[in-house]
C-alpha cells in the first residue's frame, strides 16, 4: 500500500546541500541588465551611424567590399524553433567568431586530433550547438557536440556522484578544463567543461579509442568556441 503524499515527502527528504547561490544569481542578473542597456545604446549608435553614412557611400559611388571571404555556415534543422542554451544561472557568453569560420576551425582541430578526415561541423539551429558525426574508416563512430555558455562546475568531483551506477571518472587538465568520462559498456560519453564557457559532449563507440585517448580529444584546447 503506497501513500502518495507520504512517499513523495520521504523520497525528497534527503536533499544534498544546495549549490544555489542567491547572491550569485542576483549579481548575474544585474550584469545581464547592464549588458542589455549597453547593447541597446551601442545598437542605437550603430543604427544612427548607418543612417548617416549609407547616403555618403551611395552618392560617392563607393561600394563596400568584404575585407575577407566569408565562410559559409553549414546548418542543420533550419526550420526548427531556436531554443535557449543549457540551464545556467548567468547569461551565456557569446562567441565572437563567425559561424562558418568556427565550423571550419573546429573541423580542422578535430581532424588533427583524430588523425582522420572528419565531416565538417554544422551549426544546429535548434539546439544552438556545433555538431558532427564521424564514422571512422577502421570502424566505429564518434559524435561531437559543442555549445557555448555552459556553466563551469564548482567541483569536478560533483559530476561523478559516489552512488552513480555507471563507471564514471573525471580529469582536470592543466588549463582547468574538466573532462567527465562515463563508460556505458559499449560506448564512452565524455562531457567537457571549459573555463571559457565552452561545453562539449562526445559520444564514442569503445572500439575507436581508449579512455585516455578520449580524454585527450575531449580536453583538446583547440575545441573551444572562444579561441
Amino acid at each position: 500500500m503506497v501513500h502518495m503524499s507520504e512517499w513523495m515527502r520521504e523520497a525528497s527528504s534527503d536533499a544534498p546541500p544546495s549549490g544555489i547561490s542567491v547572491d550569485g544569481l542576483i549579481a548575474g542578473e544585474r550584469r545581464r541588465r547592464t549588458r542589455v542597456r549597453v547593447g541597446v545604446g551601442v545598437g542605437f549608435v550603430l543604427v544612427l551611424s548607418l543612417v548617416a553614412f549609407v547616403p555618403i557611400f551611395k552618392g560617392g559611388g563607393v561600394s563596400i567590399q568584404p575585407a575577407s571571404p566569408v565562410l559559409a555556415c553549414p546548418t542543420v534543422d533550419l526550420k526548427a524553433t531556436p531554443e535557449p542554451g543549457p540551464q545556467q544561472s548567468h547569461p551565456a557568453p557569446r562567441p565572437s567568431e563567425a559561424c562558418g569560420a568556427a565550423a571550419a576551425r573546429l573541423t580542422g582541430v578535430l581532424s588533427t586530433a583524430l588523425r582522420s578526415d572528419v565531416p565538417a561541423f554544422a551549426w544546429n539551429t535548434k539546439r544552438l550547438q556545433y555538431e558532427t558525426l564521424v564514422e571512422l574508416p577502421q570502424g566505429g563512430k564518434i559524435q561531437v557536440r559543442i555549445i557555448a555558455g555552459h556553466e563551469y562546475p564548482d567541483r569536478a568531483s560533483s559530476q561523478c556522484p559516489e552512488d552513480a551506477d555507471w563507471d564514471c571518472s573525471y580529469t582536470v587538465t592543466d588549463d582547468k578544463t574538466i573532462v567527465i568520462v562515463a563508460d556505458t559498456g559499449t560506448t564512452f560519453q565524455a562531457e567537457t567543461y571549459r573555463k571559457d564557457g565552452t561545453g562539449m559532449l562526445i559520444l564514442a563507440t569503445k572500439e575507436i579509442m581508449t579512455r585516455n585517448q578520449l580524454v585527450a580529444v575531449a580536453g583538446n584546447p583547440g575545441l573551444t568556441l572562444f579561441p
Binding site: M1, V2, H3, E6, W7, E10, A11, S13, D14, E83, P84, P86, Q87, R127, Q129, R145, I147, H150, D165, W166, A182, T184, G185, T187, Q189, E191, G199, L201
Partner: peptide
Amino acid sequence: RRRSWRREHPVTTVPDRVAAAGGPESVADR
C-alpha cells in the same frame, strides 16, 4: 524535456520494479 543534451546520462541498469509495502524507508525505495 525538449532540449539540452546535458540531461543525457547513461545508465547501465533500470530500477527494479518491485512491489513495495508501507513507506519508502530505504534509499533504494526512494
